[in-house]
Amino acid sequence: MAQIIVEGLSKFFQVAERRPGLWGAVSGLLRRDHRSVAALQDVSFEINAGELVGYIGPNGAGKSTTIKILSGILVPTAGRCEVRGRVPWLERHQHVADIGVVFGQRSQLWWDLPVMESFDLLRDIYRVPASEYRDTRDQLIAEMSIEPLLATPVRQLSLGQRMRCDLVASLLHCPSILFLDEPTIGLDAVSRLALRHFIRRINRERGTTIILTTHDMDDIEALCERVIVIGRGTILSDGPLAGLREQLDPERRMKVELVNDERFDVEHARVISREGTMLQLSFDPRRITTPELIRRISESHEVRDLLVEYPPIEELIAKLYADSADSKPAVIEPSA
């Protein structure tokens, strides 16, 4: 049975409309006009234990609303939601004892305390038995190599260091589900890689279910086998990343650098952009295989360098959003 079940979930917010000007502000104190805004509309999905799912969408699409409902701190307007057999907001205390939540923007550690003190305080808050705590903690500290940081007050840590400590903090009570809300935001390339490596490892070795929201498509590409795309409160797509690619944009990209600045004309290869001898091509692998295209190009042109790549995932997502913007949301069958 699925670990997380979401069925027909909707959430409407009452938004107060303020009338402009001073008089508007004053009268707003007495009476406000309310407007109902849908943050989520009929959202359904299931997630199995041990999955690593990317949950992506533009700002305001309903990502954090979903995460908040799943973590028990927001009550939906309609629909069903069960996490490990519990309704999160009805049994909040029991529920949150079994999940970990990391916000990239906001640390859960105590600003003035050395990292280790924060960990110890969390042990007490989550009531982790002493021996179990010691094992988990030491293991996580070693895996994340934060040993040298333990005596440092959190306010003195760099963002990357803080993020690693935050991740460890969220795992001290061995949660079965981990929510990561933009964990790599603002990190440098090295920290980003280290963090991805760690996230993958937690998922594989501990079997922790991980739900990751991010704007960084490289995170998704590196980590997630399954991607749920949400836009305007509805699920636009749910399935493996490869499937999403095939359905939306089966084309591949090729960068070609020619030796000579000459006219380029090869069948099945469309020139997207060109700067002197540098060409960006697009082709459909169902019509021509990559080796065949390369052969044809090399036959007719002298090539200095050549690189085949996927179209950036941002473009896929943008396309998905554009499709959904046409009044009624485009439903894309999960190709799993």
Binding site: H93, R106, I125
Partner: peptide, 12 residues
């Protein structure tokens, strides 16, 4: 500043 979410996320 939204810190209340964190309090709700703890089993206390």
């Amino acid at each position: 500043q939204g810190g209340f979410d964190r309090l709700l996320l703890r089993p206390r």
